[in-house]
């Protein structure tokens, strides 16, 4: 009934392609960043970039149409939330302006030179997102600026006033940005104004809720406070992110069962599900005071 030759051919084809996939997977994990498959990936990304860029621009009206439908659903809730936030920020702005004036006068008194802080002194380069990874398990985007524009690996990337990720691969005209929602991401951060430090980790599948882990239980964190990159530095290691880049707002604080550490939930400032324009910070601002990290946390 069944032709044995056909069955054998079919099974052989399946075995060959599964074996090939596993071989590629193993080789990719085993090789360094300069290996064959990584180089192939960079080369193909550069080759595809003009087509992807064109397609991204041409299809932007369609994306915007679908985005508009979704935004309309969210707009009502956002409106009320933003009104409350504007009121809170107005009072915070007044306090900050007073504090800044005081600080300027005090630093003049002690003879300290004023240093540029984020975003001043970072030489930001604006770039357009031309491609996005299609699964939630790898959160990365491709941008239309590369080494030819001054973009380098490990430079931080921001959008809409908040950190979105860092550059992980660069070609002449494009760069890959690994987002802070990627499973492999970890950013040292500090809660302002309390000063508690920890590591921001993502929750795969929920880009609107990041976790700030490893905060000591005795340094209480309150809701509605701002989380910024801590820019950790020591003699041996240095954080990839300069100090002071806003990440998000604290929405909830959980204590673990032994109350040794707190787990802080953060709503990122940038809409990590949907952004078209980003800025790559191509220059590191002069170092400011290093943040203290709890023991055992990675920079």
């Amino acid at each position: 009934m069944f032709d044995k030759k056909v069955v054998r051919r079919r099974r052989a084809a399946l075995a060959v392609f599964v074996a090939l996939s596993i071989a590629v997977l193993t080789a990719y994990f085993g090789e360094s960043g300069g290996g064959f498959f990584h180089a192939l990936q960079r080369g193909s990304q550069e080759a595809f970039a003009p087509v992807e860029s064109g397609a991204s621009r041409a299809l932007k009206p369609v994306r915007d149409l679908f985005g508009w439908v979704g935004d309309t659903f969210d707009a009502k809730g956002d409106n009320e939330q933003l009104r409350a936030e504007v009121e809170r920020l107005r009072s915070e702005l007044a306090r900050s302006q007073t504090a800044e004036r005081d600080a300027a006068q005090l630093s003049g008194i002690v003879g300290l030179s004023r240093q540029d802080m984020y975003p001043r002194g970072t030489d930001p380069i604006a770039a357009r997102v031309i491609a996005r990874a299609p699964t939630v398990w790898y959160s990365s985007v491709k941008i239309d600026k590369g080494s030819g524009d001054g973009v380098k690996v490990d430079q931080p990337v921001i959008a809409a006033g908040g950190l979105v990720g860092r550059v992980t691969q660069v070609t002449g005209g494009t760069a890959e940005v690994r987002l802070i929602t990627d499973a492999s991401s970890a950013v040292t951060a500090q809660v302002m104004p309390e000063g508690a430090s920890g590591v921001v980790r993502p929750q795969v599948g929920n880009p609107n809720d990041l976790l700030l882990d490893l905060i000591e239980g005795d340094r209480r964190v309150t809701e509605d406070t701002t989380v910024v990159t801590s820019g950790f530095t020591s003699t041996k290691v240095e954080s990839l992110f300069p100090r002071g880049i806003p990440i998000g707002t604290v929405t909830k604080v959980d204590l673990d069962e032994f109350e040794q550490y707190q787990r802080v939930h953060i709503r990122p400032f940038a809409n990590l599900r949907r952004f078209d324009i980003v800025q790559v910070l191509t220059r590191r601002p002069p170092n400011t005071q290093a943040a203290a990290l709890p023991e055992g946390s990675a920079p």
Partner: peptide, 19 residues
């Protein structure tokens, strides 16, 4: 293979599943 090349994801994972 093409998807992993274009998206910068771990190569081989998508090929294995889509095969």
């Amino acid at each position: 293979f093409l998807l992993d090349l274009a998206s910068g994801a771990t190569m081989g994972a998508s090929s294995l599943v889509l095969t």
